[in-house]
Amino acid sequence: MNDTAKNAVLDVHGLSAGWGPLRVIHDLDLTVFAGERIGLVGLNGHGKSTLFQAIAGLTGWQRGSILLNGFEVGRTRSQGPGRYTHQIVRRGLALIPQGDEIFHGLTVEEHLDSGAYTKRAWKERAARKQRILQIFPPLEKLMATPVGRLSGGERRMVAIGRGLMADADLFLVDEPSLGLAPKIGKSVVDALMAVELGSSAMVIAEQNLALLEGRVDRIIGMHAGKLKGEASASKNLIGGHR
């Protein structure tokens, strides 16, 4: 983490969340600082996606505090998933869900443009698209191609690129390598590591610990809806080599 970045972009306290009668997240606390890149590691079904959806206001119900850039966005809710998500996005959140959450009939460029949700991002969309093409060079020749014609790896690049178009202080990236061949999955994660965060922060949920070891500021385990310990990926896990 950048030594000058000390502000908490995300501060979660006592968060519980779930769907219907099912409680998935259990009294969870998490703080993410500006400039940090964090790995959230755990098996499928243990709450990583639900945590991201709770931060975005998309769970069936939740209680507890979620501060995004110092503003309370958690709210105690029993219904209406997504009712306040647009406000949370404007506060600085970009959620990049797992899998191919895309519209197959739209082109690559149309998908990227759709990620420029806020006024500033829309005004800067041309420059932002150029940055995305630097991160994902294969997309440059595919800008006019409907995404339904792309390979799985290319579609994942589009989905992530759309999220990175946002005017965001916190990027939540859910299972970027899921369903991809190992080489393609690694290239997608490599691209995420190349993103210049500045004063923003990024949390990457992954099942594959090896993709994150030594490459992020912290790795946090998640099991049964709770965080299960934390280690420095650069020191405790692989002896200090970045």
Score class of each variant (00 low, 15 high):
1 M>P: 08
3 D>N: 11
9 V>R: 05
13 H>A: 13
13 H>L: 04
17 A>N: 12
18 G>K: 09
19 W>D: 13
20 G>Q: 03
23 R>H: 13
24 V>W: 05
24 V>Q: 02
27 D>M: 09
27 D>Y: 07
28 L>K: 12
32 V>Q: 07
34 A>L: 04
35 G>L: 00
35 G>Y: 07
39 G>P: 01
39 G>Q: 02
43 L>A: 15
44 N>E: 11
47 G>R: 08
47 G>Q: 08
48 K>S: 10
48 K>H: 12
50 T>Q: 09
57 G>W: 06
58 L>K: 12
60 G>N: 09
60 G>A: 09
60 G>Q: 06
63 R>A: 12
64 G>K: 09
66 I>K: 00
66 I>E: 01
68 L>K: 11
71 F>R: 14
73 V>S: 05
74 G>I: 04
75 R>L: 12
76 T>E: 14
78 S>H: 14
80 G>F: 04
82 G>T: 12
83 R>D: 07
88 I>S: 10
90 R>I: 01
91 R>K: 14
97 P>S: 05
97 P>R: 03
98 Q>M: 03
98 Q>C: 05
102 I>Q: 13
104 H>E: 15
112 L>V: 04
113 D>Y: 12
116 A>C: 00
117 Y>N: 09
118 T>F: 10
119 K>Q: 14
120 R>I: 02
123 K>I: 03
126 A>Q: 14
127 A>E: 14
127 A>F: 04
130 Q>N: 08
131 R>M: 02
134 Q>K: 14
135 I>L: 15
136 F>P: 02
138 P>S: 01
140 E>P: 02
141 K>H: 15
143 M>W: 05
145 T>P: 01
146 P>S: 03
146 P>G: 09
149 R>M: 13
153 G>I: 05
155 R>D: 11
155 R>I: 02
155 R>Q: 13
158 V>E: 04
162 R>E: 02
162 R>P: 00
164 L>E: 01
166 A>W: 09
168 A>D: 08
168 A>R: 08
169 D>F: 06
170 L>W: 06
174 D>I: 13
174 D>C: 10
176 P>L: 01
182 P>T: 03
183 K>D: 10
184 I>E: 08
185 G>E: 04
186 K>L: 02
187 S>Y: 05
197 L>K: 00
198 G>Q: 05
198 G>K: 08
200 S>P: 01
201 A>S: 07
201 A>H: 01
202 M>H: 09
207 Q>F: 07
208 N>C: 06
208 N>D: 10
210 A>G: 12
218 R>A: 11
222 M>E: 08
223 H>T: 10
225 G>E: 02
228 K>C: 14
228 K>Y: 07
231 A>C: 03
234 S>V: 15
235 K>Q: 14
235 K>E: 15
237 L>I: 15
